[in-house]
Design a protein around this nucleic acid. Structure first.
Lengths: 142, 142
DNA sequence: GTGTTTGCAAATGCTTTGCATCCCT
DNA sequence: AGGGATGCAAAGCATTTGCAAACAC
C-alpha cells in the first residue's frame, strides 16, 4: 500500500470515516496530477474515465486530504483554490507568472530564518507562511 | 484637495470617467477606515450614513481605486478580498493571527533582497510579492 | 445633450449542503 | 444493520453584469 494511502486510511479509521472506492480513485488521480490542481481540474480528469464521481465528492474529498495533511490548500488570487501534495514534498514557496500562469517552486532557508526573526520581534508565534513572487517567467520575460 | 482625491480625479479625467458624488463619498469612507477593509465592511459603513449607495457601486469603485493605485487588493484566504490604502503607506507584508484575525504589518529589507536573488536565480522578473506569516498574535499566544 | 454611472435585481463562478439512496464495515 | 458517503440539484457567498433611470461634463 502506498504511503499516502496509508495516511488516508489511518486518518479515516481514526475518525470513524470510510475508505470508499471514490476516495481511493480521487487519491490516485490527485497524486498522478501535477501540483497546484484545482477541484475542477481533478473532476475533469475523473470525468474522462467515466467513474461517475460528482464534483461535490471531489470537494469533500479534497477537504479530507487537507485535514489529514495529504494536501495543502492555496489561493493564488484567481478565484479558485488549488491543492498541492504535501507528502514527500517539503515546504516551499512560489514564483508566479502573470502572463502565462506558470508556477515555479523555490525554497530559501535564509528567508525563512529572517521570517522567524520578524515574528519574534512582533511577539507572534508563527506556524506557517506563504510567500509569492509575482512577475514574468523566463519565457514571457524575453 | 486631498492628495488621494487628486490622484483619483486625474485618473478619472485621463480615462473619460466622471468624478461622481458616490466616488467621492466612497473615497472618504475608504480613507477613514483602517487598512484591510472588505467591500462589505465599506458598504456597511456607508449604509449607516444613508447615502443610498449600492454594494455594486462599492465594488466598482474599489476596482477603480485598484486601477489608479489608490488601493491594493489582497486575499488572505477567508473567501473575500480586502483592500488597503497604498498612498502614504509603502510596501509591507503581514502577520496574521489565526485565532482573533488580527493583522500586523511589517517590513524587512533584507528579506526583499533575498527574494530578488531567488527570482534572478530562476530567471524570473518580479514586480510584486506577497508574504504572509500565519500564527498567533501576542495576546492569543499567551 | 450625450455618454457614463447608478441602484437594483438577476446572473455568475466557486464551493457547500440537503436529501434520498447506496455502500462500507 | 446502520451510520457514514454519494450524486444530484439546490443553496450559499462574494463579486459582476444588464438595464432603465439619473447624472456629470
Amino acid at each position: 500500500m502506498k504511503r499516502e494511502e496509508k495516511i488516508l486510511s489511518d486518518y479515516l479509521s481514526a475518525n470513524n470515516l470510510k475508505f470508499t472506492q471514490q476516495r481511493k480513485v480521487i487519491l490516485d488521480a490527485f497524486l498522478s496530477l501535477e501540483h497546484h490542481v484545482s477541484a475542477e481540474e481533478l473532476y475533469d480528469k475523473l470525468k474522462k474515465k467515466d467513474y461517475g464521481i460528482g464534483l461535490a465528492t471531489v470537494y469533500r474529498t479534497l477537504n479530507i486530504f487537507s485535514s489529514c495533511g495529504l494536501a495543502q490548500q492555496r489561493q493564488f488570487g484567481d478565484g479558485q483554490s488549488r491543492y498541492e501534495h504535501e507528502v514527500d514534498h517539503g515546504h516551499h514557496d512560489h514564483l508566479l507568472c502573470q502572463q502565462c500562469g506558470k508556477i515555479t517552486e523555490f525554497e530559501n532557508k535564509h528567508i525563512e530564518e529572517l521570517q522567524k526573526e520578524v515574528a519574534k520581534e512582533k511577539g507572534y508565534v508563527v506556524f506557517t507562511h506563504k510567500l509569492e513572487l509575482h512577475g514574468l517567467c523566463p519565457d514571457c520575460a524575453s
